[in-house]
Computed example of a mutant assay.
Amino acid sequence: MTTTTAPLPVNPDSWTVPLGYDQGQLRTGPLALLTVAAQASVDEEGRLVHDGDVAAQLALALTNLERVLAAAGMSAADLASLRVFTTDLVALDDVWDTLVEHLAETGARPPTTVLEVSRLSVPGVVCIEALAARPLP
């Protein structure tokens, strides 16, 4: 296989594209791989910000994710997958465009899974866990 500079979208059906993600992405060649622990709407001290505002929480969680990517020399374009955790799927669905619009600005469309869980370490928070990969030079 040859190395690609950008992930190749794999979408047997196109219904996920307007939702902001590909069903799969193919990356080939030697890769640098970054695993990112769940990022949330917390400040530099780990304190919850935007309690009760799911859209603002989602936006800050994305910003925090991008800070981790930048610290590793990566960007949203390198996102290989996202997992979004919430305790209130209905509330998250109502503001999903926050994530779609944010990622569209970066050109990223990582395969994404959304999970509603009964409890998170910080009550009421939205968390985003990620995997990023880029070809090695």
Rank of each mutant, 00 (worst) to 15 (best):
E66F: 08
P111F: 04
L82D: 08
R67Q: 15
A104T: 13
N64R: 11
D78P: 09
S75I: 10
F85H: 09
G73F: 10
E101Y: 11
V42T: 14
G107D: 01
A59K: 13
R47N: 12
T87Q: 02
T28Q: 07
V68M: 06
A55H: 03
D53Q: 10
G29A: 05
L79Y: 00
L79D: 01
L33C: 04
R67Y: 10
L103G: 06
T63E: 15
A80V: 00
T98W: 01
A38F: 03
G24N: 01
L26I: 14
H50D: 11
L69K: 10
G46S: 03
V84Y: 02
L26D: 03
P30G: 13
E66D: 15
T112W: 08
A37F: 12
R47Y: 06
G29K: 03
V84L: 14
G107T: 04
T35D: 11
A77F: 01
L31Q: 13
L31F: 05
A59E: 15
L48S: 12
R109P: 01
A40R: 14
L79G: 08
L69M: 01
L33F: 13
T112I: 00
Q39K: 09
S75V: 12
L89K: 14
A32I: 12
M74N: 02
D88P: 02
P111G: 09
T63W: 09
T86C: 02
L82S: 05
A108T: 04
D51R: 10
T86N: 02
D93E: 14
A56Y: 08
V114R: 12
V42I: 14
L79V: 06
L65P: 03
V84D: 06
G107I: 07
A56S: 15
R109D: 00
V95D: 03
A72D: 11
G46A: 10
L33D: 04
D94I: 03
S41A: 15
